[in-house]
Design a protein around this nucleic acid. Structure first.
Length: 415
RNA sequence: GUGGAUAUGGUGAAGCGGUAAACACAAACGACUGUGACUCGUUCAUACGUGGGUUCGAUCCCCACUAUCCACCCCA
């Protein structure tokens, strides 16, 4: 009996992986344009890191973490997200001592124990960015502009940017009470879950999909009306800078984030193309997180992109690579010469294919066609004798005679 | 954790209670007599998710299990 992969853990096979490489390369290029540096963080962290940062009462921590006790008796968890790890590293290595303004990005697998479905897996991948040490709204707008550019460079019209402000520890509790007061009168309309969350997280009712909750929250007070002067000012300036950058967005005052650490600006890149997984990227400001984790009082802002979801949006595009040259041979001597040429050309940076076995010419030509090779060089006894061989342009079908010399072939192919 | 759907070859799939499991694509090889994409030929599921049961006989009926997908919850 063959062994299967673990539920929710997927292989990314050749054919699909080229798309991933393209997404990752695009992210690296765009993010580095905006001054970020890559940071590589481990997959395993102390369980406490996540319970403290993400929030004890969140679903992620309550029921979705891959946690276990290692052989040394330590409680560890396979990271369910990247922000906490990056902030831990930031604090642990005292990166702030050198420069409190750190601009970092990371990419890699995350793990959450959930039932898999479209665009959601137990091992999934995120590309994330974290910027620390800047409270100014300029950075909010800049991060959002960078994210927008990332999607634009992938050629995606979807998703679109939505923003909101969640306020700060000064104004959010006030709003929370106001909202609770509003919902109290309509509590019988709320779904079970929202009733249960009424005390712990009443804001969730705002973006609950149940018709009852949508009805109940009609006309609910908006967080935006309760922002304190500083938060309100921050939000207004963020919007101004977004306008200056020409970055399009819409305000979604009902957007709520699932992690506890968010403050002020929050955002999502949403799409209607992925069924119930509408968020392709999401993030926000977390001005209290670093100190909460034992670091200095520094603000931060970041986001994570769901790579699987981006790949789904890129579904129809073909990213497969094609070799530049295929060498077809007849006879052992020609095969040996072709091998020598292939290696020589590869050393010079040309992608070359050669049939390893001595198959028929027909078969080799078919293979060249299957690989969609741009050119095919055909070498037999005659060619060996005269020192030149036909180089066929597979797209046009024309062929020219070239000398069996790596430099000259290279010139002809690259020409 | 809950609900629904589906399980036939590499893929898309037809199929009926009863002896070679259609068709198409892909793939391999070959023909067209040293050159691919067209055409033609050959090959390609002792097997229809797994385990039971009903039956003279099941891939098609029943039960259980498992897996996958989708949805809920929550989220990237």
């Amino acid at each position: 009996m063959a062994i299967n992969g673990v539920k929710g853990f997927n292989d990314i096979l050749p054919g699909e992986v080229e798309k991933w490489q393209h997404i990752e390369a695009t992210a690296r290029r765009v993010f580095e344009l905006y001054g970020l540096s890559e940071i590589r963080i481990p997959i395993l962290e102390s369980t406490e890191l996540f319970s403290r940062s993400i929030g004890d009462a969140t679903d992620i921590v309550e029921k979705e973490m891959y946690s276990f006790v290692d052989k040394g008796g330590n409680k560890v968890t396979m990271r369910p997200e990247g922000t906490a790890s990056v902030m831990r590293a930031f604090i642990e290595h005292k990166i702030h001592a050198k420069d409190p303004v750190a601009r970092l990005y990371y990419l890699g697998p995350m793990f959450r124990y959930e039932r898999p479905q479209k665009g959601r897996y137990r091992q999934f991948h995120q590309i994330g960015a974290e910027l620390t040490g800047v409270a100014a709204p300029t950075v909010d707008a800049h991060v959002l502009t960078m994210l927008t550019q990332f999607f634009a460079e992938l050629g995606l019209a979807e998703p679109s940017l939505q923003i909101n402000s969640l306020g700060c520890p000064a104004c959010r509790p006030v709003y929370r009470e106001a909202l609770k007061g509003f919902l109290l009168g309509r509590i019988e309309l709320l779904c079970e879950d929202c009733v249960r969350r009424y005390e712990t997280n009443p804001l969730r009712a705002l973006d609950c999909k149940s018709p009852g909750c949508q009805e109940a929250t009609k006309g609910a007070p908006s967080m935006l009306d309760y922002l304190c002067t500083d938060c309100s000012d921050h939000f207004a300036k963020t919007r101004n800078f977004l306008d200056l950058a020409g970055t399009g967005y819409s305000i979604n005052e009902r957007m709520v984030r699932g992690l506890d650490y968010y403050t002020r600006t929050t955002f999502e890149m949403v799409t209607g193309l992925l069924g119930s997984q509408s968020a392709v990227a999401a993030g926000g400001r977390y001005d209290g997180l670093i100190s909460e984790l034992g670091g200095p009082q520094l603000p931060g802002i970041g986001f994570a992109i769901g790579v699987e979801r981006v790949a789904l949006l890129l579904a129809e595009k073909d990213f497969s690579r094609r070799p530049e040259l295929f060498i077809a041979t007849m006879g052992e001597k020609a095969h040996a010469e072709a091998f020598r040429l292939m290696v020589e050309l590869q050393r010079r940076g040309l992608s070359v294919e050669l049939d390893y076995e001595g198959k028929s010419l027909k078969s080799q030509m078919r293979r060249a066609d299957k690989f969609k090779s741009r050119f095919t060089l055909i070498i037999g006894e005659d060619e060996l004798g005269r020192g030149t061989a036909p180089l066929k342009d597979m797209d046009g079908g024309t062929q020219v005679e070239v000398a069996l010399d790596a430099a000259l072939i290279l010139k002809q192919v690259k020409g």
